[in-house]
């Protein structure tokens, strides 16, 4: 007890300075999270008091075909989109790293999409671009290709969202750039003397040395992508259509909570997503021992 008192006396100023953040975390994150954990075990329509129903919400979830659809669509978006985005970001970073002039300018320009790529305005713009009378189609017509209704066809709608994600390559690119700058120049000189080709240099020197950065980007982008919402909400008009092809997990969660008045079920979905992301991240961490190389 005395020790505690002592600690408090020594540190209270520190906590005082922390308090704006602490209050935010408690009231805006921690408490709502606990509330949603409780709600996930209830039947709650937001009007009448929640009724405790145990694990029923979770049980219903696994039998809900639409829920499975949403999980499938989201996984597809994440596990196809994120690698493509990272490959693209790395390619641009490699290009910018060759010491071209005006690097700062390009870096800033390419970063811009990351800043407002998740906004409503961009989603609306995307809708126009890939619409039946959009820019993409008029471009294709000029080149003599078949046009298609990209947004409204179930077999292509998700890909337009993936392209939107790839387009927001700026923030991983900047991190890649920082990583590339850390690769010791001597290694390139040594490999050159040994007669390594450009490709060999990339695959044997650059890539292994930036694996920590690749890993970092991979984890961050995967976690972010699982929670994508705005693009699908705007582009599908809130429906997740056509034929659930853009029904992101968070979008379905939103529909359940706010359109179908099933906040208990929606909370259970949120907690499942948390666990799912946690597992995906854990798996990445475990496998990372095999392929991430830290220079000690």
């Amino acid at each position: 007890m005395n020790k505690l008192k002592q600690a408090w006396r020594n540190n209270w100023v520190g906590y005082l300075f922390l308090s704006p953040w602490l209050i935010g975390v408690l009231t805006l994150s921690a408490i709502p999270m606990l509330a949603s954990l409780y709600l996930s075990f209830t039947s709650y329509d937001m009007f009448t008091p929640p009724k405790f129903i145990g694990l029923d919400n979770y049980a219903t979830m696994f039998q809900d075909a639409k829920w499975r659809d949403s999980l499938r669509v989201t996984s597809m978006y994440v596990f196809l989109g994120v690698p493509l985005q990272l490959i693209f970001a790395l390619a641009i970073a490699l290009f910018l790293n060759r010491g071209i002039s005006g690097l700062k300018f390009y870096r800033a320009i390419y970063y811009v999409p990351s800043l407002f790529g998740g906004s409503v305005a961009i989603a609306l713009l995307w809708r126009q671009l890939f619409g039946s009378k959009g820019l993409v189609n008029s471009f294709l017509t000029t080149l003599g290709f078949e046009t298609k209704n990209w947004i409204a066809s179930p077999d292509t709608a998700l890909y337009t969202l993936i392209v939107l994600m790839i387009w927001q390559f700026g923030s991983p690119m900047v991190i890649f750039l920082a990583g590339l700058k850390q690769v010791p120049i001597e290694l390139y000189e040594a490999s050159k003397i040994d007669g390594a080709s450009k490709w060999k240099q990339f695959s044997r020197v650059t890539l292994p040395l930036i694996t920590p950065v690749v890993f970092f980007n991979l984890v961050m982008q995967i976690i972010g992508a699982f929670q994508a919402f705005t693009s699908a909400y705007i582009i599908s008009g809130g429906s997740g259509g056509p034929l659930n092809s853009t029904l992101f997990y968070t979008l379905y969660l939103y529909q359940k909570g706010f359109t179908h008045f099933q906040m208990g079920y929606a909370s259970a979905m949120a907690w499942f997503l948390l666990l799912f992301i946690a597992c995906a991240t854990a798996i990445l961490f475990i496998t990372s021992k095999k392929w991430v190389y830290y220079q000690e």
């Binding site: 975390v25 805006l28 994150s29 921690a30 709502p32 999270m33 949603s36 961050m220 976690i223 929670q227 919402f229 968070t250 969660l253 939103y254 909570g257 706010f258 929606a266 909370s267 979905m269 949120a270 907690w271 997503l273 948390l274 992301i277 946690a278 991240t281």
Partner: peptide, 13 residues
């Protein structure tokens, strides 16, 4: 991020 995940999900107002 893990802290924010659920809060963000359940507060998609």
């Amino acid at each position: 991020i893990m802290l924010v995940t659920v809060a963000a999900c359940s507060s998609n107002t």
